[in-house]
């Protein structure tokens, strides 16, 4: 089994908040972490490797410091790490990102499974996984909540839907995106951490993957951000007075339109 897992370095959501004075994201103390959904994808890849044999390659597109999340994946059981990094990738939307990752996957070589997190918590778009599969012309399943059965030729999966779940069967190669229910990511092992420290990370630039400059970064992105602004503040905020019973009465008054 050859498994490739795409991972992304993101700001830790619990640190991200708006500075009320400047209405921009407060940057102090914001840690960079591996996108939480991607941690589940790495874990599932390592479990499949433990079950079926083979190797796991983790792939990330990002700035040089994204090496950290690749090393974290190695410490949790992945075997190889590839970083696609180039200033020319800056401003990439999901279309340009899936193009870049597809090019990088082609450089890495043959695979049976490509795994991604359901979405990254900084953008929440959930578009790169499906986009990558389309570019590689392989089938994909999003929001996988359970691998019911895994063999050398294919998988039986549960895909989360809004009203329940679908049970799906597919053969390799395929791309899956993972929700957090699928597993509990392991804590890195001591041996894994030592390996991660020493491991040489393969680095690829835009030229290395043979990317068309018109398809990467800002020029390759059909969508462009024209404005960033804080959400409207909520302002109603009523204060009730009196005994608890009286306060509840006032609440019921306020909720009249919904009763």
């Amino acid at each position: 089994m050859k498994i490739i897992v795409c991972i992304k370095q993101v700001p830790d959501a619990k640190d991200v908040r708006l500075d009320p004075k400047t209405n921009t994201l407060a940057r102090e103390g914001v840690q960079s972490i591996m996108n939480p959904y991607d941690q589940h994808a790495v874990e599932e890849a390592v479990r499949l490797k433990e079950l079926l044999g083979g190797e796991v390659t983790v792939l990330s597109m990002g700035p040089p410091q994204a090496e950290e999340v690749l090393r974290q994946a190695i410490s949790c059981g992945a075997d190889h790490a590839v970083l696609v990094s180039d200033r020319a990738f800056a401003g990439a939307d999901t279309w340009a990102t899936s193009y870049t990752l597809a090019k990088a996957v082609n450089v890495i070589g043959a695979f049976d499974l490509l795994l991604c997190g359901k979405q990254a918590i900084d953008g929440d778009t959930a578009q790169v996984g499906p986009g990558l599969a389309m570019r590689l012309q392989i089938p994909y399943v999003t929001c996988v909540q359970k691998v019911r059965q895994a063999t050398d030729s294919g998988l039986v999966l549960e895909r989360m839907m809004d009203d329940g779940y679908d049970v799906l069967a597919l053969d390799y190669p395929a791309l899956l995106t993972m929700v957090k229910d699928i597993n509990e990511p392991r804590v890195p092992s001591l041996k894994g951490k030592m390996r991660a420290k020493k491991l040489e990370i393969r680095k690829l630039t835009a030229a290395d993957i043979g990317a068309d400059p018109a398809c990467i970064g800002l020029p390759g992105s059909p969508t462009q951000v024209v404005k960033v602004f804080p959400p409207e503040a909520r302002c109603q905020r009523a204060v009730f007075t009196g005994s608890l019973d009286e306060q509840i009465g006032q609440l019921v008054d306020s909720l009249q339109p919904y009763l």
Partner: peptide, 19 residues
């Protein structure tokens, strides 16, 4: 040492996330 820092990190993570 670096290895000792690693032991601390792993034990800390297990403590914070699991225990």
């Amino acid at each position: 040492s670096e290895e000792q820092e690693m032991i601390v990190e792993i034990a800390r993570q297990i403590t914070d996330e699991r225990i």
